[in-house]
Design a protein around this nucleic acid. Structure first.
Lengths: 212, 212
DNA sequence: CCGGATCCGCTACGATACTG
DNA sequence: CAGTATCGTAGCGGATCCGG
């Protein structure tokens, strides 16, 4: 538990950094935007974070109203961490950071970890900017599979693995194409037109993506 | 100079945090959005930062292409630090952070430092959301005076002291009103209508603010 | 006075080991 | 599975000092 090292500045950006400025905090939020997660899952998808720092951050975040800790009902009783509404609103901060950081992404370094659902954040922005409407999208990459709710205003923004129900569209990418789209170098409609993305599904969202 | 403690994640938000995630970095950017600043000025407006951390951050930021260091011509020869275009684009990150942090602002604590130009960030967002157009605005508060360029896409976003040329509008606030507007609790047109903001000037921007 | 560099004590972080 | 305990290291804050 941190003794609250504050900037002590009457400025809303500084106040925000008092809460989310510590190392790992915003990346934990990024993970929790995928929905409720167990401690062990968080630790597995945040390579490099030590167990005590992760535990400490989760306590701080709960105290600050970013997350709640909940016990799942048996069977499989476990604790899960979940974003509150206030925590979920950090999505805009992560979007801004991700947009700014996109040109820095470059090629994947040998030391870089990757998780398929890390592409959900830039992809949801691409879908929003393309005016693709709302709906559940399932995405298949070489690195794995994830899904996202385009235009969702509550609940999880994305998640690992296949879509929990019949999606409105299914997209299949190769990594290079997904990276190019995520960086904004290649528009999604262009990628579809060039055959670099396979679009399946009969939902309105799938049709829009095919026709755009 | 930091030995580059990276998250080593192939994710654009994590890459951004590799560059701007260290303590003080984003607050230095906030200061430099006010235009070129000397080391001593930065140190004065960032109470709590130690001299070595400030020097180290400025070196890192220059290496990462966020800032440049320039010697002013005599008389008054001094070094000034200035944002590059890449650094200036962090404005959107600071806006998102500031918006998220606004509800946390609360009342000013006894330990809180204040600078008038820290209100420029939220105020420029208010002006943008009100569709107030572009122009130079001078703002007078009890804490001091600052100016901002509404809708500017290059150059400094705001600055301390009076406007460097004839402004398109002059606003005078009391602190409580400025805070309420900055937090989004009170719209700028409403504040004008209630007589809590004095609007002077004959520019288009001033007229819009009076009539809105 | 400006622009730092140096030193010192403290806290935060990262890695590993261990426990209910 | 979900953390706590321990320990070495790195980053931070405060003060002092120093060359231009």
């Amino acid at each position: 538990m941190s003794p609250r090292r504050s900037y002590d500045q009457y400025c809303s950006a500084a106040r925000a950094l008092d809460v989310v400025g510590d190392r790992w905090t915003l990346l934990i939020v990024r993970e929790l935007l995928a929905g409720p997660r167990r401690y062990t899952d968080l630790h597995a998808d945040l390579p490099g974070v030590s167990t005590d720092v992760l535990a400490s951050r989760l306590k701080d975040m709960e105290r600050d109203g970013l997350t709640t800790r909940r016990r799942l009902p048996p069977p499989g009783a476990a604790y899960v961490y979940e974003l509150t509404g206030h925590g979920r609103e950090l999505l805009s901060v992560l979007q801004a950071l991700g947009e700014w950081g996109a040109p820095l992404l470059g090629d994947r370094r040998a030391t870089d970890a990757v998780r398929a659902h890390w592409f959900a954040l830039p992809l949801s922005r691409v879908l929003r900017d393309a005016g693709a409407g709302t709906g559940l999208v399932e995405v298949r990459l070489e690195e794995g599979e994830f899904h996202l709710w385009a235009g969702a205003e509550e609940g999880p923004v994305y998640g690992e693995g296949p879509a929990p129900e019949e999606p409105d569209a299914r997209l299949t990418f190769d990594t290079a194409t997904c990276v190019a789209v995520a960086r904004g170098e290649l528009s999604l409609p262009d990628a579809v037109r060039e055959g670099r993305v396979e679009v399946r599904g009969e939902g309105a969202l799938a049709k829009e993506l095919r026709e755009a």
